[in-house]
């Protein structure tokens, strides 16, 4: 029904290899320029940790120093435990879903499946099965 025709093969396009090559060159050049701009320094920046609770953003100190409230220590230990317990559980959920997704994917039609059982040509078009 479409009243237009796609140009198929006769149009000149860019090859996949050239695209990958140009992308690789651009990434390398950008990285080198960033490195040069940073004065050929190591990428790691030993950062000054700044305490946002201090007026003017001064350098803070560890909260443990000078802590006189055992409740705070307990509270933070509790959150640590919650982080790890829930983290391990969330990881487990990821694996459960990952495995479930793989099983479900195995039940689906493989990519390129057609009713006649033949695989279509490289380009997957929607109306291909009519012909």
């Amino acid at each position: 029904m479409a009243e237009y025709e796609l140009p198929e093969d006769e149009v000149s396009t860019y090859g996949r290899a050239s695209i990958l090559f140009a992308a690789a060159v651009s990434l390398v050049v950008t990285a080198v320029l960033a490195w040069a701009a940073a004065g050929f320094d190591v990428f790691y920046e030993g950062l000054f940790r700044v305490g946002p609770t201090v007026e003017g953003g001064g350098v803070g100190s560890d909260w443990v120093a000078g802590n006189t409230m055992p409740a705070l220590d307990f509270l933070i230990a509790l959150i640590h435990a919650a982080d790890v317990i829930l983290g391990v559980f969330i990881l487990f959920l990821v694996f459960v879903h990952w495995a479930a997704f793989r099983r479900l994917a195995a039940q689906m039609r493989p990519p390129g499946w057609t009713r006649s059982g033949t695989t279509p040509d490289a380009e997957r078009t929607d109306g291909g099965e009519a012909e």
Partner: peptide
């Protein structure tokens, strides 16, 4: 104390970790 304020910053950051991990999942 200021120490307590620091502890709350720690608490706040550690609390968000659960959500951070959950959102990735």
């Amino acid at each position: 104390t200021r120490t307590a304020a620091m502890a709350f910053v720690v608490f706040h950051g550690l609390l968000g970790i659960i959500m951070l991990m959950g959102v990735m999942f």
